[in-house]
C-alpha cells in the first residue's frame, strides 16, 4: 500500500473558526483516514506543536489557516517563515478561509503588514505565486465550508484534476454564486423584498444588503451544517468569500435611484433593468402574501 500523504495544518493569525468548521464535518474521520494527520489544532496526533515549530515533521499537503503577518511568532518561531519552510516541500498548499487566502477581517487592523498567503485582497503576490502557483488551492470563506475542504482533499486522494479559476479557487465550488439554490429565488425573480427582517417570504437583495448574486460560492448548493444557510434564514449574504470582505454597511443594500448598485455577477445593468421593469409591472398576489397562516 502506498504511503498516506501527510496532512499538516498550520495556524497563523486566525480566530480558529476554520478548524472548528472543518471539525464539524459529518464524515471527518472517513476523510482523515486517507491521510497521515501530522498536526491539526483540535485533534491529538503523534506530534506536538513544538515538533511542528522545530521543523521536525514533514508535509505533503499543507493547510494554512489565518492571515499572514510579517512578524507573527509562536514559541519564538516566525510563522510566515515556518509556512514557507513547509510550503516548499508540499505537493499541495491549501489556503483555508478568507484570511489565509486574501487577508480577511484582520487585515483591516494593520493593512500593510497583514495579507493572505498568495493574494493581498485582489492583488497577486507575485513572488509567492511564482513559487507555488501550480500547487496552490484557494478556499476562501469566513469560515471555510467543511465540505468544500473535504472535496479538495478527496480530489487529491483520488488523483483527479481540480479545475481552478484565476484566483486558484476550484471552479466546481466557486463557479457558482451564493444566489444559486437560495430558497428565496422566486422572490428575487419577481423583485419582492423581505420588508424587514424575520420573514420567510421575500428576497434580501433589495434592502437588506444580500450579496449572494455577486458572491462566489456554493453556500446554497452545499448547505451549512447540512441544514441551512444565511440567506435561507433571512440573513443577507455578506460576501465573506470575496477578496474585499468585509465591505461596509453589511445589512443594507446600496442603491441608486432604488436600484441595487451592484449587479448580479456578469449581468449587464441594462439587462437587469429590463427584466426588473417587466417583473415589477405585474402584481403576483401569491408572492405578496404570507405563506402560512398560523392562528395567533
Amino acid at each position: 500500500m502506498a504511503r498516506k500523504p501527510k496532512l499538516l495544518w498550520i495556524q497563523s493569525l486566525t480566530c480558529n473558526g476554520n478548524s472548528h468548521s472543518f471539525f464539524n464535518h459529518s464524515n471527518l474521520f472517513s476523510i482523515l483516514s486517507h491521510f497521515e494527520l501530522i498536526y491539526f489544532p483540535l485533534i491529538e496526533t503523534k506530534y506536538s506543536l513544538e515538533d511542528v515549530l522545530r521543523k521536525k515533521v514533514h508535509s505533503d499537503i499543507l493547510i494554512i489557516e489565518g492571515a499572514i503577518k510579517e512578524d507573527l511568532t509562536k514559541g519564538g518561531v516566525n510563522i510566515k517563515e515556518l509556512i514557507h519552510h513547509y510550503a516548499k516541500e508540499s505537493r499541495y498548499i491549501i489556503t483555508a478561509g478568507t484570511c489565509a487566502t486574501f487577508g480577511g477581517i484582520f487585515k483591516q487592523s494593520e493593512p500593510e503588514k497583514i495579507s493572505g498567503f498568495a493574494f493581498d485582497k485582489e492583488n497577486e503576490k507575485e513572488d509567492i505565486l511564482s513559487l507555488y502557483e501550480h500547487r496552490l488551492i484557494s478556499l476562501p470563506g469566513c469560515p471555510i465550508h467543511p465540505k468544500w475542504l473535504s472535496y479538495v482533499l478527496l480530489m487529491i486522494i483520488n488523483r483527479r484534476r481540480i479545475p481552478l479559476d484565476e484566483k486558484n479557487r476550484p471552479q466546481e465550488l466557486y463557479g457558482f454564486t451564493v444566489h444559486t439554490g437560495c430558497v428565496r429565488n422566486e422572490y428575487f425573480e419577481w423583485k419582492i423584498d423581505t420588508h424587514g427582517f424575520g420573514h420567510k417570504e421575500g428576497c434580501s437583495f433589495y434592502e437588506n444588503g444580500c450579496q449572494g448574486p455577486f458572491t462566489h460560492g456554493s453556500c446554497n448548493k452545499i448547505l451549512w451544517n447540512d441544514t441551512s444557510s444565511k440567506t435561507v434564514v433571512g440573513t443577507p449574504c455578506f460576501g465573506c468569500t470575496e477578496p474585499d470582505f468585509p465591505k461596509e454597511r453589511l445589512f443594507s443594500t446600496k442603491t441608486n435611484m432604488g436600484i441595487p448598485q451592484k449587479m448580479p455577477l456578469g449581468i449587464p445593468k441594462r439587462a437587469y433593468l429590463t427584466v426588473t421593469g417587466i417583473a415589477k409591472s405585474f402584481k403576483i398576489k401569491r408572492l405578496e402574501k404570507k405563506v402560512i397562516d398560523y392562528e395567533k
Binding site: 468548521s21 469566513c142 469560515p143 444557510s229 440567506t231 434564514v233 440573513t235
Partner: peptide, 11 residues
C-alpha cells in the same frame, strides 16, 4: 444552524 443559518459565524 436551522435557526441561525450556520455555525461558526452566524449573524
Amino acid at each position: 444552524a436551522i435557526f441561525a443559518g450556520q455555525w461558526p459565524h452566524s449573524s
